[in-house]
Design a protein around this nucleic acid. Structure first.
Length: 415
RNA sequence: GGAGAGGUGCAGGAGUGGUUGAACUGGCUUGUCUCGAAAACAAGUGAACCGCAAGGUUCCGCGAGUUCGAAUCUCGCUCUCUCCGCCA
């Protein structure tokens, strides 16, 4: 969430920002009205508590006088009605402020998906490959039918060389990021509600929730390792000297993908479960923009080294999601679809997630403030396999293994 | 899953229902001393909210309750530890 003090002082631009991002229900005027009520109530409650404390201080030691006890009783009644009122207003306020999206940076294009701007391009826009689903199914590497039998639509098995290729990509990416000072983390695959919503994902009660929840437990399956990695330092104050903290979390990702269907979600491109290696950084506010660029560079480095053509887009406001101030997507060129398709993504969430989960930095001079968080996909396995399957088909119908992956698949050059 | 013990400040660790935001010890910071360091001594050392400030309120795992007043009593939850059971 945003800092309420910032909202108070910048009512108009916060409202405008929410509108740019497509948050039609956000009313900053209403939020501030509640904020005002809440502050008045808080003051009243504080004053009553002060009176209560003074009153009981008079009774320390000796036998209390009846008059003081009666006064205490009167304060108690008044206090409890005010407190109840305050609790209600606070809860309402909390729901509203959590619904306000992060402020987008000035260099983020305003508009919907179509307004996103291409900022980089790599490789050729080639054509003429066999669709990955048809190809992999024919080679008995991929089985959606049995996935459906066992779990349901959009579940799948990877078999044989494709399953091996997944491991190779994973190992290569782990090597790539750990060489760049990311600490590899194996994370909880389920998190509680606070961690889920604090990271910026919809609460389980919401019908828009893309997460699977465990019935009877305060647990949901993670949609990305970003979620448990954000929560890792919740309620902590980190010394400035220890920042940035760079983690790479590997985990399966579970997504309901309700309503997603159609030509461009075919096969492995959009599924209920996939593995992913996610970079995550806790950083000082002044360093986050530079680290964001670095995350993008790492993502580009991975795909350049595999010789997969791509471009990078600066995502427009309407497509940012709630926590990001700025987001880059790396989209690979699909020779099958003749268009760029999302492969990885990296976001600077500034202090939005940090404020939700109370993650702060203690400066050298002792001052404490919110830190910044960033996340970026190293590799998303299902989609990575799609990109490789589409790009590395040889004339005789095999798959040429990108050179950098060969050490991780027994030195094989062709599958 | 069953039984028991326990969750107090940066860490350890006291705490009788009212003088405890919290003893004491350690850590850390600053100062004195020193050529410098160590030692010693002295002072300081959590966070949130409101306020220009003075100051006020809140926080002793979390949440309810009892009370004029709760770190201290009651209940629920949660986490940690020990033992048993189960198990990759």
């Amino acid at each position: 969430m945003l800092d309420i003090r910032f909202i108070r002082e910048n009512q108009d631009i916060v409202q405008k920002n929410a509108e740019n991002r497509g948050y039609r229900d956000v009313s900053i005027a209403k939020l501030l009205e509640l904020d005002g009520q809440k502050r008045i109530l808080q003051q009243e409650v504080d004053e009553l508590r002060e009176r209560r404390n003074q009153n009981s201080a008079k009774m320390k030691g000796g036998k209390p006088e009846q008059e003081l006890i009666d006064e205490g009783k009167r304060i108690k009644v008044e206090l409890s009605t005010r407190e109840e009122y305050l609790t209600g207003v606070s809860a309402e306020f909390q729901v509203m402020i959590e619904g306000v999206p992060n402020m987008a940076f000035d260099d983020v294009p305003v508009g919907g998906e179509e307004a996103s701007i291409e900022i980089k391009q790599f490789g050729e826009q080639d054509t003429g490959a066999v669709d990955h689903l048809d190809y992999a199914t024919a080679r008995d590497w991929l089985d959606f039918e049995r996935g459906a039998k066992v779990a349901g639509a959009k579940f799948y098995y990877l078999k044989g060389d494709l399953a091996l290729l997944e491991q190779a990509v994973t190992q290569y990416a782990i090597q790539f990021v750990t060489e760049r000072n990311f600490t590899l983390m194996s994370v909880p695959h389920m998190v509680n509600q606070r961690t889920m919503t604090g990271t910026g994902f919809a609460p389980r009660s919401s019908d828009q929730s893309d997460e699977y929840s465990i019935e009877g437990e305060d647990l949901s399956l993670i949609a990305t390792a970003e979620i448990p990695l954000t929560g890792y330092h919740a309620d902590e104050i980190i010394d400035e000297a220890d920042l940035p903290l760079r983690y790479a979390g590997i985990s399966p990702c579970y997504r309901r993908e309700a309503g997603a269907a159609g030509k461009f979600t075919r096969g492995l491109f959009r599924v209920h479960q996939f593995n992913k290696l996610e970079m995550y950084v806790f950083a000082t506010p002044e360093s986050s923009a530079a680290i964001h660029e670095e995350l993008l560079q790492i993502e580009e480095g991975i795909w350049q080294s595999m010789e997969i053509p791509y471009h990078v887009i600066n995502i427009a406001t309407g497509d940012l999601g709630a926590p990001a101030a700025k987001k880059y997507d790396l989209e690979y060129w699909s020779p099958v679809d003749g268009m760029y398709r999302e492969l990885t993504s990296c976001s600077n969430c500034t202090d939005f997630q940090a404020r939700n989960l109370n993650i702060r930095v203690r400066r050298a001079d002792g001052k404490v403030e919110m830190l910044h968080t960033l996340n970026g996909t190293a590799v998303s396995l299902a989609r990575s396999l799609v990109a490789i399957l589409e790009h590395c088909q040889t004339e005789d119908g095999k798959i040429r293994v990108p050179e950098v992956l060969r050490p991780y698949i027994g030195g094989r050059e062709v599958l």
